[in-house]
Computed example of a mutant assay.
Amino acid sequence: MPDVNSEFSTASKQKLVSDMKIVVSDAEEILRATAGVAGEKMGDLRERIGESLRDAKLRLADAEVAVVDRTKAAARATDDFVHENPWRAVGVAAFVGLLLGALISRR
C-alpha cells in the first residue's frame, strides 16, 4: 500500500511548486514595471534578480518533474496493490467509508 506520508509530501510539494510559480511571476512583473527606471544600482539589482529568477525557474522545473514522477509512482503502487489484493482494497475502502460516515453523522 502507498505510504501516506509520501502522499502528503507530494501534496506539499505540489503546493510549493504552485506558490513558487506565483512568486516568479510576480518578480517578473516587478522587473517589467521597473524596466524604465534608470540608475546603476537599479541596473545591478535588476540583473541580480534576473539571474536569481532564471535559477529559480530551473529549480522549479526540476521540482515539478519530481512531483509528477512521485505522483505517477504513487498511482502505480496503488494500482498494483489493488490488482494484487482486490478484496483487501475493498475492505480498506469500506472501512474508510464507514469512518467518514460516522464522522459526518456526528455533526
Rank of each mutant, 00 (worst) to 15 (best):
A73I: 06
T10E: 07
D19Q: 02
T78K: 14
V4P: 14
I49W: 05
F95M: 11
D3I: 06
L103M: 08
D69T: 12
E29G: 05
G101S: 12
E7A: 04
T78E: 15
A89V: 07
L103T: 15
D26V: 06
M42T: 03
V4L: 13
R54L: 10
A77P: 08
S9V: 00
A56C: 09
F95E: 09
G97F: 07
G39Q: 02
G43V: 00
K72M: 07
N5S: 09
I49T: 15
L16N: 02
L31Q: 00
D62A: 13
R32I: 00
R48H: 11
E47R: 15
L16I: 03
G91L: 10
K13Y: 00
V37N: 01
A74R: 14
V37D: 01
A89C: 07
W87Y: 13
L45G: 13
E7I: 04
N5K: 12
R88S: 11
A93K: 13
D62I: 11
K57C: 14
R59F: 08
P86C: 04
T78A: 11
R107C: 05
A35G: 03
I104P: 06
V92I: 14
D26P: 06
D69L: 03
I22G: 00
A102N: 13
R70F: 04
G39W: 05
K15E: 00
V17G: 04
R59M: 13
G36F: 01
G91T: 07
D69G: 03
L98V: 11
G36P: 01
L58R: 15
E64C: 05
A89K: 08
M1F: 09
